[in-house]
Nucleic acid binder design. Structure first.
Lengths: 260, 260
DNA sequence: TCAAAAGTGTTAGCCATACACCCATGC
DNA sequence: GCATGGGTGTATGGCTAACACTTTTGA
């Protein structure tokens, strides 16, 4: 086997030899952003058909799975040091049996060994990331036609089990909400209470009472109320808030809603 | 490479060829049981030194990771159809660099290829299982001297990062407690309220108010109060309870404490 | 001036907490 | 009978849900 000498494209940054990669193991990132009071997810458009996929990649033999996910995130967004959370492993052998993907791979005319690499069964580790929308410059990888944000409630057709992976990421976040605050990584420095509430409503998939939400958030003691008002909107101008980083991290660590 | 022809012992049930396994991927089970109002975990004692390890195994190329974990669980306990939950992936390349384990492997005088198999870097998927203590007949695998229960708060020395894995399993359970009932798989048909409370207290690592715990559990509507009393104890005889399976499963699915 | 967005206030009801009190039993 | 374990009751405070009222602003 001379497989080790073949190169696999791992994004625009680097190519790696097959022999340097963990065989059959990948990471897939569900990258969430927030814009227009809508939760968005970053997707790649496959080169040869109209389907989309999650930004993903392989794991180097020398790196941790977390590092692999960070690398993928960096390659697609240019961002470092963001909230990145492993949430589930997708290990069904049939998960990558996708006729569309296979035909796409075929039309790419990959060299034999690389083709075989892609065709093997993969176990993938799902990570979700929360990133600041404005800071992201989406970068497609070499096998993708484009890289773009999509509303989480209006997803395009996705390859493999990627739709399930996104749904699972949302459910995991919903559970994490019960013992962690959220928003620090999703929102810009200053934001309105409505922005924050919209994030919670999207993740929880239900409306929250405005008044009660404000009270609860302020009670958590992680917000700074600015004197400045939000400009540009129609109607009454809302206050701007920012997170108190120290307190936010403390609540993140010690628990938010400590149940039981 | 003739590695494919070498056999790896996968427990007392079967041997598998190396070529049939996912390389570098394993599952490790944290199997919880409950006895004497104490939470226990099932461990294997390494053949050649005094350290212990979690029951684990490799993933067949043809099976799902969940199925691999079920297989491991069955081999060590003889149990099927129990609560088995994936909770975290341990993917640090240095996690299996354990001098004790390496020396243990050395002393086992494994054939070269098999030795190499064990020495490669492994990413392991952590599962935790909740099983009925009385129903388990612990079975060591071929490389272990014994298989026995240990109190979760008095663990022996463990290889690799297995101590971290157990701690992580407990934390994950603690979080799951907030939206799932627990106990159905850990307790025998009939049990006392104190038994159930002890499980919660162990997992949450703090004392709960007896009166309030009873009220909360009864309010959930998943318990049947038996007329029979628990016999044999000193002092006042407590009532026996059993789970209402249908209601239990409904609460398991729909959520227990729906927060937010 | 009016509708919509946002700030603030109020109330009822539920639930967690922290006990208090009583009963049953073995020593 | 008394210490202990276990069943039951209750007062309190806090939080949530629901909604009312006010303020600000652009159209």
């Amino acid at each position: 086997m001379r497989m080790e000498s073949k190169l696999i494209n791992m994004g625009k940054q680097q190519n790696f030899k097959v022999g340097e990669l963990m065989p059959g193991l990948s990471v897939d990132n569900v990258i969430f952003g927030f814009h227009d009071n809508q939760l968005k997810v970053l997707l790649l458009e496959c080169m040869n058909h109209r389907d989309w996929m999650l930004p993903g990649g392989f794991v180097l033999k020398s790196e941790s799975t977390d590092a692999a996910a960070e690398r993928v995130l960096y390659d697609r967004t240019g961002l470092n040091n963001v909230y990145l959370q492993q949430f589930h492993v997708f290990g069904d052998p049939s998960r990558s049996r996708d006729s569309l993907m296979s035909s796409a791979m075929k039309s790419m005319e990959l060299p034999f060994e690389t083709d075989n690499w892609f065709k093997q069964r993969f176990v993938t580790i799902g990570y979700y990331a929360l990133v600041e929308f404005e800071k992201v410059v989406p970068v497609p990888d070499s096998i993708s036609a484009s890289c773009a944000w999509h509303d989480t409630d209006k997803l395009p057709r996705l390859i493999f089990d990627h739709k399930d992976i996104i749904a699972n990421a949302l459910t995991s976040m919903r559970h994490h909400l019960n013992y962690q605050p959220i928003g620090y990584n999703l929102l810009p420095k200053e934001f309105t209470m409505k922005n924050l509430q919209s994030i919670y409503e999207t993740i929880l998939n239900r409306k929250l009472d405005r008044s009660n939400f404000t009270r609860k958030m302020l009670a958590a003691g992680i917000l700074d109320k600015k004197e400045k008002l939000f400009a540009g909107g129609a109607h009454k101008a809302p206050y701007l808030y920012s997170f108190k980083k120290k307190e936010y991290l403390k609540v993140l660590k010690d628990g938010f809603n400590n149940e039981f």
